[in-house]
Design a protein around this nucleic acid. Structure first.
Lengths: 352, 352
DNA sequence: AGTCGTGTTGCATTCGCAGTCAAAACAATT
DNA sequence: AATTGTTTTGACTGCGAATGCAACACGACT
C-alpha cells in the first residue's frame, strides 16, 4: 500500500517539533517493518534482541510514544476506567480518589474523572462514559437500578464504592457500618448515656442510612427507644443545625449524638461548644463515621469509625480488574470492617 | 470493500447485549450510508431533516454511542485533558479539582486524572500523558523546566495551576500572593504585633515561597526585621511543629504567626491553644492562606487569604482552550487577586 | 543433502469514524 | 426543455497500531 508512510522523508532524524511520530517512522528509521515496532512495544512478543534494541533506539531518538488511542481502537481495551464522584467537597472522597487513582495507575489503568453535582447530570455523564469505551467504572455516586442495568447490557463492569444498589444486585465495596455503629453505640451506652440523638445523612446515601439504622436498632436492643433523628447533608453546617434541632426537639440537648459522618460530627461539636456552651465530652458526647483528616485534629479528637480507604480502593480495583477480564463474574459485595478510632469527643464505656 | 459491515445481520434490531454497535449498524438500519450517520452526529453538517430523523431513531433503537476513541484517531482531537495533582490530600486541591472537572465538562472536555505522590513518578506519568494524546494539560504539580519544555516540543499546551515555572516562561494561573500577604501582614502590624513568626511551605512550592517572601518583605518595610521562619510541609502536623519550633527559636511564642497555608495555620492554632495554653487571638494571632472549608469552622474562624478557586479554574480552562485552538499563543501568567477573609484568629488593625 | 522444529520477521488487514470528492437529486432560472 | 446553481448523499480512503498468517532463517538431527 503506497502512501502509507505517514511522514515520508520530511524528518531528518531528530525529533522535529510538532511532527507526530508514528510506528512507521520508527520502523523506517530502524530498517524494520511497522509490525516489528509494534511487537517491540508489547512485551512477551517474539522479537530478537538485536531488533528490539534497534527499534528502541530509533524510538528514543525520534521521541516516539505509542498512540494509546489507536491501540485501544484495535485491541478494544482503552485501559481507561471512569470514576464517578458526586461531591468531591466531602472530605472523605478526595482520600478515596487519591487511593483509587494510585491503585489504578499501579495496575496500568488510567482514570477518567467525572464529578457530578446534580442528579440530573448522571445520564449525560454516562453517555460520555460509553463514548470513551472505558474498560470499567467505579461509582461513588448514586445510580438508579435502571442506569446500572445499562452497564450489564453493555458489558461494562461497574463497581460501587462505599455504596450499593438497594433495588437489585450490584458489585460493591463497602465498610461494615452496622458493626461499627454497634461498637460506637454500645460503648456510649455503657458509659451511661441514655438520652441519645442522631444526625442522619442525605436520603440517597445508603451508608448514611445504614449508620443511622444500625445505631437506632442497637439502641433499641439496649432498651433505648424513640431516639430522635434529624436530617443532615453530610456537611459542616448541617451538623451545626442538626444539634440545634435535636436540642429543640428534645427540649434540652442530648447526652450523646451519633452523626452519620465526621464532618457533621465536627459541626455538632462546634455547635455544642460555641452555641450551647456545652463541654465535650463532659456534657455531651459526639461520635462520627469516616475517619477523615480533620477528625484527628486537636480541637476535635473525634471518636469515629474509620473507613479503611486504602483497602477499599484496593478491593474495588481488584474486583474491577477481575470483571474486566471476565465480565460474567456474578455480583458481589465485599464488606470490610472499619477501625474504631477512640478520641476524646465522647465518654465511652470499656468495650468488651 | 467487502466484509466491511462489522456485524452483518447478526443483530435482529433491538440492542443485543454485548454486541458493540457501530455507525455501520446504524446506517444499515436507517437505510443510509455510514457517512450519513457520521454527519448526523456532527452538528453543522449538511443533512436533510428526514435523514437526520431516521438516523437518530435507528441510533436510539440500537443504543448507539459514537466511539470517541475512533473519532479521536481520525480527528486528532481526543477532547481529553490531563490534570496533574501532587497531593490530593491537601484540602485545597479537591476544591480546585472539582472546579476544574466541572468547567472542563462544560467545555466538552474530559479529565484524565493523574495523582503524583513522589517526584520520581513525574516522567512515568508524562509518558502516559503523551500516549493518550491529550489535547492539553493542567498541572497543579511541580514540573522541571526540562519537563515543561517537552510540552512545547510536542505542541501540547500546558497550564500551571496555582504555580509556575521559576526558571523559564510558562503559562499559568495564580493568585496574587504578594498583595494578599501584604494585606494580612500590614493589618497584623497595625494591630500592634511586632514579634512575628513564619511557618513556610515546602521548598518546591512556588506560591508557598511567595507567601513567605512577601510577608517578610512587607514586615521589613514596616521596620520588623529578622523574622524567624521555620519549614513546614503544608500539613496539620507541620503547623503544630512549626509553632513549637518558633517558640523555641524565639525563646517565647511569637505574637503573630503567618502560615503559608490554612491547614498549617489550623495546626498552629491548635498547638497554641492546647500545647502552649495561649488564647487565640488574645495572646497570639494566626493567619493563613487558601480559604479552605475547615478554615471557617467555628473552632478556627481563620483569618486567611481565600483563593478564588472557581475563577482560577475558569481562567485555566479558558487559557487551555485558547491554546488548544492556537498552540502558538505566547506564555502568559494570569494573576487573580485573593479575597481577604477576616475571621477571629487574629487581632487586626483597621485596614485602609 | 534433506527434513523438521523453533524462532523471527513482514505483509496485509482490521478496528470505527471523519472527511474528501464526485455523483445524484432537486430547485431555480433562462 | 435545457441549463445552472444548490443541497444532499454515498463510495472510498486513511488515522496509527495490533495481529493472523505465511515466509523466512537457522540450527539440529537423521
Amino acid at each position: 500500500m503506497p502512501g502509507r508512510n505517514s511522514s515520508s522523508g520530511k524528518r531528518a532524524g531528530s525529533a522535529a517539533p510538532g511532527q507526530v511520530v508514528t510506528s512507521y517512522d520508527v520502523a523506517r528509521r530502524a530498517g524494520v517493518s511497522q509490525s516489528a515496532v509494534s511487537r517491540c512495544f508489547k512485551n512477551g512478543a517474539s522479537a530478537s534482541h538485536e531488533m528490539r534494541e534497534r527499534v528502541m533506539r530509533a524510538a528514543h531518538e525520534l521521541g516516539y510514544s505509542p498512540n494509546a488511542i489507536a491501540r485501544s481502537l484495535i485491541t478494544k481495551r482503552s485501559n481507561l476506567i471512569a470514576v464517578l464522584i458526586s461531591n468531591l467537597t466531602n472530605l472523605y472522597y478526595p482520600e478515596a480518589l487519591a487511593e483509587l487513582t494510585a491503585q489504578a495507575s499501579a495496575r496500568g489503568m488510567r482514570v477518567l474523572l467525572f464529578t457530578l453535582s446534580g442528579e440530573s447530570e448522571v445520564d449525560q455523564v454516562l453517555e460520555q462514559v460509553w463514548q470513551y469505551r472505558v474498560d470499567g467504572v467505579i461509582s461513588a455516586a448514586r445510580l438508579s437500578a435502571a442506569q446500572a442495568a445499562v452497564f450489564s447490557q453493555r458489558r461494562v463492569p461497574l463497581i460501587f464504592f462505599n455504596r450499593y444498589l438497594l433495588d437489585g444486585p450490584s458489585t460493591a465495596v463497602v465498610c461494615d457500618q452496622t458493626g461499627g455503629a454497634r461498637a460506637l453505640v454500645q460503648r456510649l451506652h455503657q458509659a451511661g448515656h441514655r438520652r441519645f440523638g442522631v444526625i442522619a445523612g442525605p436520603v440517597d446515601s445508603v451508608v448514611g442510612q445504614e449508620r443511622v439504622q444500625a445505631s437506632i436498632d442497637c439502641l433499641a436492643a439496649l432498651g433505648v427507644h424513640d431516639v430522635p433523628v434529624v436530617a443532615g447533608s453530610f456537611d459542616y453546617d448541617s451538623g451545626v443545625r442538626g444539634l440545634h434541632e435535636l436540642a429543640k426537639k428534645m427540649r434540652k440537648p442530648p447526652q450523646a449524638v451519633v452523626c452519620a459522618n465526621d464532618v457533621m460530627a465536627i459541626g455538632c461539636m462546634d455547635a455544642a461548644r460555641y452555641d450551647l456552651q456545652l463541654d465535650v465530652p463532659q456534657k455531651i458526647s459526639v461520635v462520627g463515621f469516616d475517619g477523615v483528616g480533620p477528625a484527628s485534629w486537636a480541637s476535635y479528637r473525634l471518636t469515629t469509625l474509620r473507613q479503611p480507604v486504602q483497602r477499599m480502593a484496593e478491593a474495588a480495583l481488584a474486583m474491577l480488574a477481575d470483571r474486566i477480564l471476565n465480565p460474567e463474574l456474578p455480583p458481589e459485595r465485599r464488606v470490610l470492617s472499619g477501625i474504631l478510632v477512640v478520641g476524646t469527643s465522647a465518654r465511652l464505656g470499656p468495650g468488651d
